[in-house]
C-alpha cells in the first residue's frame, strides 16, 4: 500500500536541503559579534536615511500580477498530466494542448495591452 522506497531520494534531498539553510543561519548567528544600537537596528536602504515604518501598505495595482500568476498557475496543473503522458499520446493531443495554452495567452495579451503588466 505505502511505497516509501520509491521516494527515498526525495526524502534525503528534502532533509539535506532543509538542513543547509538552518546551518547557514545557525553559523552566522553563532559567529557574529552582537553590538546593538539604534543606528544598527534601523533598516538599510542603500545608505539613504530610512523614512517611515517597514510595515507599509502596498499599492493595489500589484494585485494584478498575483492574479495573472494565479491563472497561469492553475493552467500548469492541467498541463502536468498531459506532459507526463506525452510519449503515449500523439501529435493531435499536442495540438489540443497548444490550443489550451493559446487561449489564456489571449488573456495575457489583453492584460499587456491594458497596461496591467506595467510595474511602475
Amino acid at each position: 500500500m505505502f511505497l516509501l522506497h520509491e521516494y527515498d531520494i526525495f526524502w534525503a534531498f528534502l532533509i539535506i536541503s532543509s538542513i543547509i539553510p538552518i546551518l547557514a543561519f545557525l553559523i552566522s548567528g553563532v559567529l557574529t559579534p552582537i553590538r546593538e544600537g539604534s543606528e544598527k537596528l534601523s533598516s538599510y536602504e542603500s545608505g539613504i536615511e530610512p523614512m517611515g515604518n517597514a510595515w507599509l501598505q502596498f499599492r493595489i495595482r500589484y494585485y494584478m500580477f498575483a492574479l495573472v500568476f494565479v491563472v497561469f498557475d492553475v493552467e500548469t496543473v492541467f498541463l502536468y498530466p498531459w506532459a507526463m503522458s506525452f510519449d503515449v499520446l500523439g501529435i493531435s493531443v499536442f495540438i489540443e494542448a497548444f490550443i489550451f495554452v493559446l487561449i489564456p495567452i489571449v488573456g495575457l495579451v489583453y492584460a499587456w495591452r491594458k497596461g496591467a503588466l506595467e510595474w511602475s
Partner: peptide
C-alpha cells in the same frame, strides 16, 4: 498521472478546453 493525462486529453477533451476558456474569462 499518465492515466489522468490520457483521460483528460481524449475522453474529456471538451471540458479540458473549456477550462482554459474559464481561465481566460477569469483573467
Amino acid at each position: 498521472v499518465q492515466q489522468i493525462g490520457i483521460h483528460l486529453s481524449t475522453n474529456f477533451y471538451l471540458p479540458f478546453e473549456l477550462i482554459s476558456i474559464i481561465l481566460l474569462i477569469s483573467l
